[in-house]
Design a protein around this nucleic acid. Structure first.
Lengths: 240, 240
DNA sequence: TAGTGGTCTAGACCACTTC
DNA sequence: AAGTGGTCTAGACCACTAG
């Protein structure tokens, strides 16, 4: 880790971050498990403690690890039992966390549309896995979700019996680290399928959430479109 | 700055951050102006360079300052000419930045409603300033905004001739530092005033954005409700 | 009591901007 | 050439957790 600094462009602490991230990706340190102590790590990697701590600080800011004074450093894992992942800002009209049943309706292998090819950066030969879901909240339909995943990133998914209910569950099962997501909330006329799923009139306005999720290499991992009954849902915002 | 550490709870670098922030608030360093160099600052404050730099890092993460290698450290100022402030996620249907005329319709001093008293944490005797605005985009009405500001934080505002077009402009003019905002986007039936402003049918569904902005002491600074034509607007999201 | 992460210091060298 | 922020090191002490 201590080559001639003359030819290094990427700062050492970012190289250390990359090396640590690579081990998390490899599954060397499991989600929820703890990393070696800072003392062990900086000695093993041949950098100073300050540099190692700066690298850990970056990973902490990226929400990939959690540090607890006196206890250790842990790989951040997906909280099971959460029905919505942390990249879903939609809430029920009552403001409570959405916590009903999830019906996974179809899981099919298919070819991407032009739009999906573009946002997921796929080749013509790539396949995608499509999942349709309906989420209930307080026994009423809350969301109708159309998920599109690159088959290359989720091999064997279409044939699986049990499928996780949200992005974080899927990602964790396939060892993918989701770093961020971007999207839009709009109102659109309901398609027949969305109208049926949400029990609203055909063509009535519904809220839509289009979302693209990216991994730590900034590669797209999932494209989702979700529809919500105008009256039962809103989008929660935190702005800095 | 170097008292007996036995009785210090708040870390020194956060105390330094607080001291620097106080000077920014006082207007000692103007928005856009530059701070003294790190060397001058750490010597003046009697802490080590590392501690001073950690304090600056916090202020940078809070988006209150900007550091430019080789040039210096600057107080982050509001970009004039931006019609929407950085705490407004709404965009026109074309995705372009909203950049039309802004009509400030009414500016009135009044008493807060119960809801406003609660979210702005006001006493019964406190007054509020209300501003109504209409924003145009591509010559069509884009947003109808109802702004509610504590008179105590914006003294003399109701009597001013020229009023800034958005939260950041207002805050800068009164020396307030906005740190964050939270809110919700929903669809609601248009009130008569909103319907008239947006040229939609009375009671038709419109998007609404309710937003509360907070300063660096986490005190509420503004409560806004804005309405948008469903067909012309959407909400842009970035999630981490 | 041993181990962990958090804070703080002092000093060196670097790339970059500005004059 | 002088000044700025960015990186990197080595070492000290602290509060907290756990056995």
């Amino acid at each position: 880790m201590n080559e001639d600094p003359k030819f290094q462009v990427r700062p050492l602490y970012l190289q250390v971050r990359d090396a640590l991230l690579a081990r998390i990706k490899d599954g060397k340190w499991r989600p929820g498990g703890n990393l070696p102590s800072e003392i062990d790590l900086y000695q093993e990697m041949g950098v100073s403690l300050g540099t190692l701590r700066k690298a850990l600080g970056v990973l902490e800011a990226e929400q990939l690890i959690v540090r607890e004074p006196g206890r250790g450093t842990f790989v951040r894992g997906h909280q099971r039992g959460q029905t919505l992942d942390r990249f879903n800002p939609m809430r029920g009209a009552d403001g409570l966390p959405v916590g009903g049943q999830v019906k996974t309706r179809k899981v099919r292998l298919g070819s991407p549309t032009g739009g999906e090819r573009a946002v997921l950066r796929l080749d013509a030969s790539d396949k995608v896995v499509r999942i349709h879901r309906i989420r209930l909240h307080e026994r009423r339909p809350f969301a109708y979700e159309l998920v599109c995943l690159p088959e290359r990133r989720f091999p064997g998914l279409a044939a699986r019996a049990e499928i996780p209910d949200n992005l974080e569950g899927l990602a964790q099962a396939w060892g993918i680290l989701v770093a961020r997501a971007e999207g839009q909330v709009r109102a659109v006329p309901a398609s027949p399928a969305a109208a049926a799923a949400l029990s609203v009139a055909d063509g009535a306005a519904v809220l839509s959430l289009e979302r693209i999720a990216f991994d730590t290499d900034d590669q797209p991992v999932e494209a989702m479109t979700a529809y919500f009954d105008l009256r039962n849902a809103y989008c929660r915002l935190e702005m800095r």
